[in-house]
Design a protein around this nucleic acid. Structure first.
Lengths: 152, 152
DNA sequence: CTATATGCAAATTCTTTGCAAATCG
DNA sequence: CGATTTGCAAAGAATTTGCATATAG
């Protein structure tokens, strides 16, 4: 996970300006402990007395994804969410129940793709992997609720 | 993957009515070879002279997800898309250029999932893997046409 | 000082909802 | 027949865009 000075440096390297809103958004993003949506970030900023506009938040979020600071993930509901990158390969599992996100390092998607290339002769330019499931917490949670629901 | 009669049966089992639009949408959905959006399905229906409304398409899509006929997945862009359920072990690659489809059975997605489970503690209930690329034919085709645009 | 970035609000895009009329069983 | 479904179009969410103004460098 990148630190603020490095991110600022990357912005400058791109020939972009280090503006006040960008600094504020970078800082707010770095303080996130889990996945968040653009709207949630905006609310948080406003709560901290930072009056950034929606558009600026969306634009800066896109910038941070491009800079490799954030990864975009999708909640089962379809909401766009963001998580700090720096986790391995950019692959995540999203809990269908509570939205918790976990990354899996050392994933062998690349091996899988190599195998597919060998089998099909296709040239693979990209891939989209989505895993559905329940995090450890929700597994227990569900087990408790399931017995009640399933008992009927 | 379920067949039409089974799906119709499931609808009836739920005490729901087997209406003409539902039949038509089920049929159209079953003929899909890859992931599709609600809008794409609507266009396809209209192209076949079936004048179903947007709302009905969305509602029926939701129903089919509930019935386990479809899985809802998310395109990287954020679009909601749908795929026939039960394809978990018959992954395929679609050629971005000519639409050729190749499947790669015996893939090691299961190994990948096992690793993810070990690493994250998540219970993985399903997965969707989509690969983008060019088939062998189009790789050559593209190489040849690169200088002289598509000669279709 | 000049070009970039901001912020607002309107525009887009995708999806859902309300309700009268059509339809299934 | 009576309750469920449909289809339309308007309502809603989420995100993007246009443009005058503020501001970084």
């Amino acid at each position: 996970m990148l630190a603020e000075p490095e991110i600022i440096a990357r912005i400058q390297e791109r020939g972009l300006r280090v503006t006040r809103p960008r600094r504020q958004i970078v800082r707010a993003v770095l303080s996130q402990t889990g996945p968040f949506s653009a709207e949630e970030l905006l609310v948080r900023l406003h709560g901290n007395g930072i009056a950034a506009g929606r558009a600026t938040v969306f634009r800066t979020l896109d910038l941070l994804v491009e800079l490799g600071v954030l990864d975009r993930v999708h909640h089962p509901s379809g909401l766009h969410r963001y998580v700090l990158a720096g986790l391995d390969h950019g692959h995540y599992v999203v809990c269908s129940r509570c939205g918790a996100v976990a990354d899996f390092n050392g994933c062998n998607v690349d091996d899988l793709i190599a195998a597919v290339v060998a089998q099909t002769g296709f040239r693979i330019d990209g891939h989209w992997l989505e895993l559905f499931g329940l995090c450890a917490v929700c597994q227990n949670d569900t087990a408790a609720n399931c017995s009640a629901a399933a008992a009927g």
